[in-house]
Amino acid sequence: MTTYPATFASLASICSQVRQAASVAGFDQQSVYEIELAVDEACANIIEHSYGAEGLGDIRCDCLESPDSFTIILQDTGCCFNPEDVPEPDLVSPVEKRHEGGLGLFFMRQGMDEVHFEPCEGSGTRLTMVRNKKRKTR
């Protein structure tokens, strides 16, 4: 478990930790990139939505490997995050008509096989994201 300040400047370090762990777990470059993108988006969401701004807490990051899967746990002490409050992104309108934002959770769900949020004791959210080593083609 490594703890980082919840700032955008931490994104590169958090991603580096996850990239390294995912490579050791045997994922190919494409998969490592998808996992990294999921984690970057998740952490940016924690900073923007759970804490509401930069520098208001920490993000704890843990990577766990099993024979079949790779799990990332991200924990914050901000507000509880409810993914059901996030509208589905608009992927069909002409690009120039779309509203900025809303792609973070989408990239998380695309890059990982399981994404779940649970409230932590006290305050904050624990986000668990699992990527199976053998993934069905999407």
Binding site: L37, D40, A44, V95, E96, E100, G101, L103
Partner: peptide, 19 residues
């Protein structure tokens, strides 16, 4: 090496202005 959704929106917004 890497671009997140924040970066993708920068490209889209620039493209909107340019076009």
């Amino acid at each position: 090496e890497f671009i997140s959704s924040a970066g993708l929106w920068v490209l889209v917004n620039a493209q909107k202005q340019c076009k």
